[in-house]
């Protein structure tokens, strides 16, 4: 976390001089103290986050691929002669196996970004999903992103 904040500070300054470096240390120290006080940062969990970075990169690459697929699907639909007749919207209750809160947020956001589905509501062990046709429903039932999030959780 301190390393991340320091990189952010350097990026926002866009130049590396002595006063910027010294001020950076002070600002990052103050921020870390504050974050620890309000329980937003737990130093013991930092190493776990670092160990999950490869899984996260794999997840992000897959997510970008899914977004491209979703957009091609959407563009086809929008440019077709009568889009309102080609869709069959429905709301589905979908079970989700994700336990942690951040994992659930990631799942809900990635469902919204994958082809043909938008998350409507998130509960403890289910998500309500608005699907635009049956094809989208199939994609939801064997989604790769869900497995990837589960794998990330196992390392926790």
């Amino acid at each position: 976390m301190p390393v991340l904040l320091y990189i952010l500070w350097l990026a926002f300054n866009e130049r590396v001089t002595v006063d910027v470096l010294i001020f950076g240390v002070i600002v990052v120290a103050l921020l870390c103290y504050f974050l620890k006080k309000v329980d937003l940062w737990d130093p013991s969990k930092d190493m776990q986050v670092v160990s999950r970075i490869p899984a996260m990169i794999g997840f992000v690459i897959r997510l970008i691929y899914e977004v491209f697929k979703a957009n091609i699907h959407m563009i086809m639909l929008v440019l077709s002669p009568n889009p309102n007749e080609r869709i069959k919207p429905r709301i589905i209750k979908h079970k989700n196996p994700i336990k942690t809160e951040s994992g659930r947020v990631a799942l809900a956001n990635s469902i919204t970004l994958t082809p043909g589905t938008v998350t409507v509501d998130v509960g403890d062990d289910y998500v309500y999903v608005h699907a635009i046709d049956e094809y989208a429903q199939d994609g939801l039932n064997n989604s790769v992103l869900e497995k990837k999030i589960e794998n990330m959780e196992k390392n926790l």
Partner: peptide
């Protein structure tokens, strides 16, 4: 503008804007 109902419109707004 081409879709007629809120929930169908949200699909376009959510996906295309992020890409």
């Amino acid at each position: 503008f081409r879709f007629h109902y809120v929930l169908n419109r949200v699909h376009v707004a959510a996906k295309c804007d992020s890409l």
